[in-house]
Write a protein that binds this DNA or RNA. Structure first.
Lengths: 344, 344
DNA sequence: AAGCGAAATGTAAGCGCTTTCATTGGCGGA
DNA sequence: TCCGCCAATGAAAGCGCTTACATTTCGCTT
């Protein structure tokens, strides 16, 4: 048995195909009785509107694309849980608005924007990890003139081209460091890459420096160790710091994964966390609360992040003016920083 | 400037629109010179084939839908990392085959199959957590007659309708339990729901029972505590077990999340893991290796799972005969089970 | 020189829908 | 009684592409 079309319904309902189309979309132009009749028949036939035909004709796709560009090589399981959390939130938000969500985890292609929007695959694009920030900015600038519809999770910098949503990284770094200082720590390290290809980590680092300064402590450049993203990077960074012989009693890590790796390295080297070394992460990924010790961290609200990304993108698609937006961070105090925990 | 169409290219290349279509698809019917010329022009115009038009005309979508039906209510971050790992692998596999991936995290709708396949949104569907197994089976049976294209991650049961990919849950349960027995544990509990709505957990439980029997130990029904999926469930289950006063020295948990929750509860009740209580999980989610203690667990290979799901589904779509498939499990020995660790 | 087949291209018919514009019928006001 | 108007419906034109079929061209055989 072939798939039913709107024409089949039209014949059965003894109306024209255009009336069927209208009835199915609840157009006020069609008589309520007719509408009901048509919809009943459609249900009986298990009819569903062909989205390709609809999209082609109406020149829109009702689809959002989410590009997550953090390819760790062959493996697939290694995607940062923070991004996956946003993905989950985005998926919900998109569904709530009646859109479909197209997901791709590939490296950013040469012209990702055209591939998705121009090819009428999606009405707009959400970008979640864009690789090198500078390359990305250049690409964005090119795209600015074309009326492209995309939004990026990343650093919110005034005057920067493109539309960005991100959290207050500087403040987050400040909050974490401040807390460690209040707990009596004086030799606080920072784990995270601060090259200008990583503006978010760099901002967290800025906050860290500012907190030290505010407390009258002077920062020791040797206590900053690069680390890109994974647990492995954090592990390596902590080892490197230990080997340097430089004394330290606390670490601010630019992400939870880095913190997890660092803690693992510290403990296996015989340093107790938080007794010997306090550690604070960044992101508040789901496992942070369930580790031992439970991870103190700077939360980025992924649920809100996803919602904001979707809402703003839809506004952009609708042609409304949209601005970048800075989301607040919150320090979640658990066990890994020492001192009394506020919550679990 | 309007979007270029194949007709625009045809004019510029002084050929017919059909030749353009053929040239862009690398058809051998078109002269290599012409092809090059057409493709050059297409590139200059930043032309991309309109996927809606292509899909409509060619009656296929080049898209796979992934439905993840594990809605934890409002939140979004609570999706089981195990499924997210499969999602990642699926995304890669799908991309490698030139397909797009549509993702939905909603609860399964009344007719999810029609919504996606019938509506020409996708050529096939991957299901990743189907809610209640019995309801789902009923639905599948209905769908069997329609020539639906979908594949499910779940229990592989001979004679069962539908196409399933899953790991050898019974064996996994056996491996975990066997190990604990070898480590000298004699009062081994099981955390995980074993109602017939959860055939996978139930199989893991079967393996657990068989291992106990094989060792001449008799299972104590009071040492089995239900737990659905989250850390919270595991936490609660462990507390319940502690409160029962029943002595136990090890836990087999039906998932890593349950294990994480259980460990957290045990430790906060003053029981050291693995010294007082050994714990083994199931799944090998990314954090398992980085916890303290590192979690011993039964690995399900998510990378292979994703690849197999995609390959089999594509075969099904291509009309080839496809069978369900059982994937092997592997016990990853780390710290939480006591005894020497094989690997990290 | 005629004929024929293969290679290359052109022609045109839709895929199933949305939407504009035209048509119909019924009813109230003049 | 006639006209105009509104509500409801129908007719038809594509959206941009793929593809079956028709046509042209050209090199070769006979």
């Amino acid at each position: 048995m072939k798939k039913a079309t709107s024409l089949d319904i039209a014949h059965l309902a003894r109306v024209s195909q255009s009336t069927v189309s209208r009835a199915l979309r609840n157009s006020p132009l069609v008589n309520p009785d007719t509408r009901r009749r048509v919809q009943d028949i459609a249900r009986q036939l298990n009819y569903k509107v062909d989205v390709n035909a609809r999209n082609l004709r109406s020149m829109k796709t009702n689809t959002i694309a989410l590009l997550l560009c953090e390819d760790p090589g062959g493996g697939a399981a290694q995607i940062n849980p923070f991004f996956l959390s946003i993905l989950g939130s985005v998926a919900h938000a998109v569904a709530r608005r009646g859109y479909d969500l197209l997901v791709s985890f590939q490296q950013l292609s040469e012209d990702w924007q055209a591939d998705y929007e121009h090819a009428n695959r999606a009405d707009g694009i959400i970008l979640l990890g864009y690789g090198n920030y500078n390359d990305y900015l250049k690409k964005i600038s090119e795209l600015e003139q074309a009326e492209a519809h995309f939004i990026t999770w990343g650093p919110v910098i005034p005057g920067q081209p493109g539309l960005f949503i991100g959290c207050d990284n500087r403040k987050g770094g400040y909050q974490a460091t401040e807390r460690l200082i209040a707990a009596g720590r004086r030799h606080i390290g920072f784990v995270g890459e601060i090259s200008d290809g990583c503006p978010e980590f760099r901002d967290r680092f800025r906050g860290y420096r500012q907190a030290l300064e505010a407390a009258g402590l002077n920062a020791d450049a040797a206590l900053q160790i690069d680390g890109e993203s994974s647990e492995k990077d954090g592990h390596r960074a902590a080892l490197q710091l230990l080997e340097s012989g430089r004394p330290f009693d606390a670490l601010v890590c630019a992400s939870d994964l880095l913190a997890i790796g660092a803690i693992s390295a510290l403990r296996h080297a015989g340093h107790r966390v938080p007794d010997a070394v306090s550690v604070i992460g960044f992101d508040d990924i789901p496992t942070a609360a369930h580790m031992t010790p439970a991870l103190t961290t700077v939360r980025q609200d992924t649920v809100e992040a996803g919602q904001v990304l979707v809402e703003k993108l839809l506004q952009l698609i609708a042609g409304k003016p949209v601005d970048s937006m800075l989301l607040p961070t919150e320090l979640i105090v658990r066990e890994s920083c020492g001192g009394p925990a506020d919550q679990r």
